[in-house]
């Protein structure tokens, strides 16, 4: 770990100014991913600006019926929040499926969105990696790809985004509120993370010095019937092989609306728009669910080590939708 300076921000504008004016600076939230990276040599910031004392620690109801989540709200607190649990159960479930209790107690909402891939080559500074060192090549291609992408990858990077929380938020159409030197801007979460393309070192659309201050969830009444299912090797403290976040609005045996997002399949939390389109207006049957999954997976391109993810996504999506529709018709 390289030496670094540390300062604690007392207001958001000051934090933004401190990082934006210093190319080697980084914001420090829970530190659960950044500190690992500093130890591994993946990141070497020379200034950490601690933002944990900024007043971003609230979950508030919005007049529109939605919810605004401060970027500093800890994952444990967000998972336990009554508003979240009652209106967006999939989000609470996603949070509780992530990491361990200790990590959730530290990890923040903003930091969770910004955590980086756990691709083993990205984390091993002795191997080439385009995301870590642009232009050196992708070691995962032709290597260990069990956890890697089946959707939206490029020849330069096949990593996946590791967050569970973000998958549920993408399904809920969240908006990220960002503060920069020029003031606030709002970015749809589905457009916040990027696909790797030719520049996989760029995980998100954030510029240097831009600070996430909140995440807003719009009202979505049918999300009270939603679920997050994470498939993984261990029952706890393991990243997703694949995951499915879904909400289903069924009336009279027909799907009126649906929200589906996938984790563990792409460089970003994957909103399954093809599946959603196939579901709308379709009978709420296993056959429709399968067709919706197949519509989404038509674009899937497995690597040598992860073809299993295609049937796993299909089966898991069908199972989640089946269980949600069963709840709808008692």
């Amino acid at each position: 770990m390289n030496p670094f300076a540390y300062e604690r921000a007392s207001n958001a504008a000051g934090a933004v100014a401190a990082v934006a004016g210093h190319p080697g600076a980084a914001f420090l939230g829970g530190g659960t991913n950044l500190v690992d990276h500093m130890r591994l040599g993946v990141a070497s910031p020379d200034l950490l600006v601690d933002i944990t004392k900024l007043p971003f620690d609230r979950v508030e109801e919005l007049p529109s019926g939605g919810v605004r989540i401060g970027a500093g709200v800890r994952n444990s607190d967000l998972a336990a929040d009554q508003l979240i649990r009652s209106r967006y159960p999939m989000l609470s479930q996603a949070l509780l499926s992530g990491a361990s209790g200790q990590l959730r107690n530290l990890a923040t909402t903003g930091g969770n969105l910004l955590q980086r891939t756990r691709c083993v080559y990205f984390q091993d500074v002795t191997t080439p990696c385009n995301k870590r060192e642009p232009g050196t090549g992708c070691s995962a291609i032709g290597g260990y790809t069990r956890y890697h992408a089946i959707l939206g990858a490029s020849e330069h990077c096949v990593a996946v985004h590791p967050s569970d929380m973000a998958v549920a938020m993408v399904a809920l159409d969240a908006t990220v509120v960002v503060l920069g030197r020029l003031g606030e801007r709002r970015v749809k979460l589905v457009e916040f993370h990027r696909l790797p393309g030719d520049d996989p070192w760029q995980d998100t659309v954030l510029g240097h010095g831009e600070l996430i201050v909140a995440v807003e969830l719009p009202a979505l009444p049918f999300a009270t019937r939603s679920a997050y299912r994470k498939v993984r090797d261990r029952a706890s403290f393991a990243f997703a092989l694949v995951s499915v976040a879904a909400a289903l609005d069924v009336e009279g045996g027909t799907v009126r609306d649906a929200r589906v997002a996938l984790g563990g399949v792409a460089h970003k939390p994957w909103r399954a728009t093809q599946a959603e389109a196939a579901l709308r207006g379709a009978p709420a049957t296993a056959e429709s669910f399968r067709r919706a999954a197949d519509a989404e997976l038509a674009a899937a391109r497995p690597l040598d080590g992860n073809a299993y993810k295609i049937p796993m996504v299909r089966n898991t999506m069908v199972a989640v939708l089946r269980d949600l529709s069963a709840e709808a018709t008692p």
């Binding site: 756990r118 083993v120 080559y121 984390q123 091993d124 002795t126 191997t127 070691s139 032709g142 290597g143 260990y144 956890y147 403290f237 393991a238 990243f239």
Partner: peptide
């Protein structure tokens, strides 16, 4: 290709 264990972490 490299000759070492690449899963050196939690996985």
């Amino acid at each position: 290709r490299f000759g070492h264990v690449v899963t050196q972490d939690r996985r």
